Computed example of a mutant assay.
Amino acid sequence: MKYALVTGGSRGIGKAICIQLASDLKYNILLNYHSNTEAAEATKTEIEKMGVNCDLLRFDVADHDSTQNSIDNWKKDNPEAKVEVLVNNAGITKDGLFIWTNQEAWDSVINTSLNGFYNVTQTVLKDMLRSRYGRVINIVSLSGLKGNPGQVNYSAAKGAMISATKALAQEIGKRKVTVNAVAPGFINSDMTSEFDENELKQLIPLKRFGDPEEVANLVSFLASEKSSYITGEVISINGGLYS
Rank of each mutant, 00 (worst) to 15 (best):
S228Q: 14
K15G: 06
A22T: 02
S228P: 10
N28E: 14
L114E: 03
G210A: 02
G116Q: 08
E41P: 07
G8E: 04
N69E: 15
S236W: 05
D55T: 05
I99Q: 13
K176I: 07
T67S: 12
G9N: 04
K94I: 09
V120M: 05
S243Q: 10
K49M: 14
Y133C: 02
L241V: 12
Q68D: 01
T93E: 12
G116R: 07
N102G: 13
A22F: 00
Q103A: 15
G147E: 00
N69T: 14
T112I: 03
R135A: 01
N88H: 11
A105K: 15
F117E: 05
A164S: 11
S220D: 12
F117W: 12
G239P: 14
A62K: 00
D107W: 09
S10F: 03
M50E: 14
W74E: 11
K207P: 05
A169D: 09
I237D: 09
L30Y: 02
A216H: 04
K94T: 09
I17V: 13
Y229E: 06
S189L: 08
N102D: 15
G232D: 09
D60P: 02
A223M: 13
G185A: 00
I172V: 08
R135T: 03
S143G: 00
E84F: 06
E197D: 11
S141L: 01
N180E: 09
P212Q: 10
E213H: 01
K44Q: 13
K126C: 11
L222V: 11
Q20P: 03
L31H: 04
F209Q: 02
A40I: 11
Y242F: 15
K158H: 13
M128V: 00
Y242A: 14
E84R: 10
G51K: 07
I17K: 11
A160S: 15
K26H: 07
F117A: 04
V177G: 06
S220A: 15
K146D: 02
L206Y: 10
N89T: 08
G116K: 04
V61C: 03
G91K: 04
N217S: 08
Q103E: 14
E194I: 09
K226P: 02
I92P: 12
V215Y: 03
H64Y: 11
D95K: 11
N36Y: 10
A42L: 13
E199S: 15
V136W: 06
L31F: 03
S35W: 01
C18Q: 08
V152D: 04
S155K: 13
L129F: 03
Y33T: 07
V182Y: 01
S141E: 05
G159R: 08
F98K: 04
L203R: 15
D127Y: 03
N217E: 11
D107L: 10
F209G: 03
G232K: 07
I187V: 14
A40K: 08
V120I: 08
